Amino acid sequence: MNTAYPVRLAGEDLWLLPDKALYWPAQQALLVADVHFGKAAAYRALGQPVPQGTTSANIAVLDGLLAALPCRQLIFLGDFLHGPGSHAAATLSALAQWRERHSDLAMTLIRGNHDKRAGDPPPSLNIRVVPEPLLMGPFSLQHEPTPYSERHVIAGHVHPVYRLRGRGRESLRLACFRFGRDISLLPAFGAFTGGYAVEKDDECRIFVVGDNEIWPVG
């Protein structure tokens, strides 16, 4: 695991991870958003020339995080599977082998918009599936970044990225964490996902992921 960046949010200590995940030490919980397992397979089934090995890459990163961190639970903030085509035999077989390696770990999926279309993960994966929100401590864990009264929302869905500008026209478009006053966003965990550009203002903090580290902006 690369170097974690500690932050304080809603009275809780959290770690931002360069692997585009969040760790909550008090709950020994690893949070990831928008893995989109099987997205590449779904696109290839439609005849689109897209890269192979994205499911394996995502699993390898998860394995590394779970080996490095004391985790009692893994929480997916929506979009575990990309779509109906994600139920390809090779994808489900890889996920079954991965789940077997972590058979004692509690896993929860907060159902996202892609999960509704793809269907829940197979029961054999032993992943608890719940609708949003999942209330834990001071947080409302969600897929959609909609406000929740008296709780700070941690969500996915947006796939936030931030453009760092250099001299002239030089710029870098990097995945980021965006922490707002009431709603905070995690970057998309999946290796084959797009991104939506977010801006910084006086009421938010942005942390970009780059060079296997977390960098605060501004």
Rank of each mutant, 00 (worst) to 15 (best):
Gly156Lys: 02
Val7Lys: 02
Val35Lys: 04
Ala96Tyr: 05
Gln27Cys: 02
Arg111Lys: 11
Leu9Phe: 07
Arg163His: 06
Arg205Glu: 14
Gly78His: 03
Ile214Lys: 09
Ala26Lys: 13
Pro51Gln: 04
Ser149Leu: 12
Ala96Leu: 12
Ala57Cys: 08
Pro18Arg: 15
Gly78Leu: 05
Arg151Glu: 02
His102Cys: 10
Gly168Ser: 06
Arg44Asp: 09
Ser56Lys: 10
Pro25Thr: 13
Cys204Ala: 13
Arg167Ala: 15
Pro160Phe: 00
Val217Ala: 06
Arg178Gln: 14
Ala41Asn: 11
Ala10Gln: 07
Arg151Tyr: 13
Thr108Gly: 07
Leu66Thr: 06
Leu16Ala: 07
Arg169Trp: 04
Asp120Thr: 04
Ser140Tyr: 03
Thr91Tyr: 01
Glu213Tyr: 00
Leu74Phe: 08
Asp63Arg: 13
Gly218Trp: 08
Gly218Ser: 13
Gly156Phe: 01
Arg173Gln: 12
Leu46Arg: 15
Thr146Leu: 13
Pro49Val: 14
Ala41Glu: 15
Gly112Phe: 10
Lys200Leu: 15
Gly194Lys: 07
Met107Leu: 11
Arg169Asp: 14
Asp211His: 12
His87Pro: 10
Val7Pro: 09
Trp215His: 15
Thr146Ile: 09
Leu22Ala: 05
Leu46Met: 15
Asp19Phe: 00
Lys200Arg: 14
Trp98Tyr: 12
Arg117Thr: 13
Lys200Thr: 04
Cys204His: 12
Asn126Cys: 13
Pro121Gly: 08
Ala4Trp: 00
Val209Glu: 03
Glu203Gly: 11
Gln142His: 01
Gln27Ser: 08
Phe189Ser: 04
Ala118Ile: 10
Pro147Leu: 15
Leu69Glu: 01
Ala88Lys: 12
Gly78Trp: 05
Met107Ala: 14
Leu62Trp: 08
Pro18Ile: 14
Ala155Trp: 06
Ala21Lys: 03
Phe80Val: 07
Gly112Glu: 10
Asp63Ile: 09
